[in-house]
């Protein structure tokens, strides 16, 4: 593990901790939803750094799948907040 990769993982970890703080403290449900969405995007970043670190390209598959699933999950949460049925 090179110093660059160590720093990168540390920065991403710090960002994730800030996100988790907002998920825990967020005064309203939408605050938490935003933080969860952002956390999903940060995890894609984690996967990239892991792909660099190990040289294995299958981490990119995880990144793509995570990006798509986190998007669908966020849309479902947003519709729930809006108070609509899921097929509307």
């Amino acid at each position: 593990m090179t110093p660059f990769e160590q720093t990168a993982l540390a920065v991403l970890l710090l960002s994730s901790v800030l996100c988790l703080f907002r998920i825990g403290r967020g005064p309203t449900a939408p605050d938490r939803t935003v933080a969860i969405d952002i956390l999903g995007t940060l995890i894609v970043g984690f996967c990239c750094i892991m792909a660099l670190l190990t040289g294995q390209e299958y981490y990119m598959n995880i990144a793509i799948a995570w990006a798509l699933i986190s998007f669908v999950g966020t849309l479902a949460l947003a519709k729930y907040l809006e108070g609509r049925h899921y097929d509307a």
Binding site: D37, A67, L68, T74
Partner: peptide, 20 residues
């Protein structure tokens, strides 16, 4: 993917937040 989906997600959450 990220460039296309993230703005849409933010828009959906904000609209949901306002309506809730």
């Amino acid at each position: 993917f990220i460039l296309l989906t993230n703005p849409v997600a933010a828009h959906a959450i904000c609209r949901g937040a306002y309506l809730s």
